[in-house]
Computed example of a mutant assay.
Amino acid sequence: MLEEPEERPGVPDALVAPASSRPRRRGRTVRLIGAAALLGLVAGTCAGYLVQAGREPTKLPPLSQPALRQAKGGVEPLTAAQDPRLRTDGDLRKLLLKRPRGARQEGWVPRDGWMGLAAYARQYTRPAGEFSDLVTDQFRRAAVTGWKDGGAYGVEIRLVQYRQEDSMAAADASHNLESYAEGEPQTDSWAVPGTGDGQAYVHHRPDTKNGYLPVYSAEAHAWRGDVAMEIWIYGTKPVPKKTIMDLAKRQMERL
């Protein structure tokens, strides 16, 4: 049986349809089907409204809900292990590393272990500008310790705390010191484990002055919460990586 030829524009239906079929009126048929579908949709919608109108209204749940019972007893406060702020809001000096046995405290360290705003600003080459910046950064306090380890190295550790009402000043201060350290020539650096972005640095080029022995240095910077950690080591011999990394790791574990 032959297939029906493809319909072409301008060709009458009687020439392309089989003899047993009637000429097709496609346009009218489509219009009739569309009208019937529309009448069916309207009729169905009206019937639905009539059925719904004959039913009794469904009761809605009350807007007011029963009051929940309050648990008895108070909420237990967080421990120092759960809330680091409990440690740093106390005596910050207690979080400093202890002076090694046999090491002696050096004269540059304050006897009471505290360094105020003016004293801390004087540690920088431009104290007046640093003082203004520290006021803007909401400097709170600094706890300091330090010692002379035999005849080779001097160590100083600072925990600098900020109020941080308007900015992450502790993180900013740590990052600024890292930028200065990275700009020093002949410097190696390593990430301090467990600190996120803390870094330790060993400077291989010594500072030299006429009449003085060359001074080598190393430093480490990290932060946690509102406290920035600074560690400085100076000596007449190159500072080993292990020395600065060990101090930085142990000090951050206490924060």
Rank of each mutant, 00 (worst) to 15 (best):
R126T: 10
L96Y: 07
R22F: 11
T125D: 15
M115L: 14
V42H: 09
E6S: 08
E130F: 08
R99H: 07
T88V: 05
G10M: 12
V30F: 14
P18W: 04
V75E: 01
D91Y: 03
G48T: 10
V75R: 12
L68P: 11
E4C: 12
G102R: 08
A17F: 02
A121R: 04
A71Y: 09
L78V: 02
L2W: 02
E3V: 12
E4T: 14
P110M: 00
R101K: 15
E4D: 13
A119L: 12
V42P: 00
A43E: 02
Y124K: 02
K98L: 13
G129C: 13
S64H: 00
P62K: 06
G113S: 02
L39V: 15
I33S: 10
P66L: 01
G34W: 01
Q82M: 12
P100Y: 00
P12N: 06
W114H: 02
A53V: 03
R99W: 07
P18D: 09
E6D: 13
K94Q: 14
E106Q: 15
Q82K: 02
R87E: 06
L63M: 11
G113C: 00
T125Q: 15
R87V: 05
R104E: 15
M115Y: 04
G10Q: 03
R25D: 15
V51T: 07
R25Y: 13
A47R: 12
F131Y: 13
P23Y: 03
C46F: 07
Q82G: 02
P12Q: 07
V51W: 09
Q70A: 09
D13W: 03
R85M: 04
A67V: 11
R55P: 05
G10R: 07
P12K: 07
P100H: 00
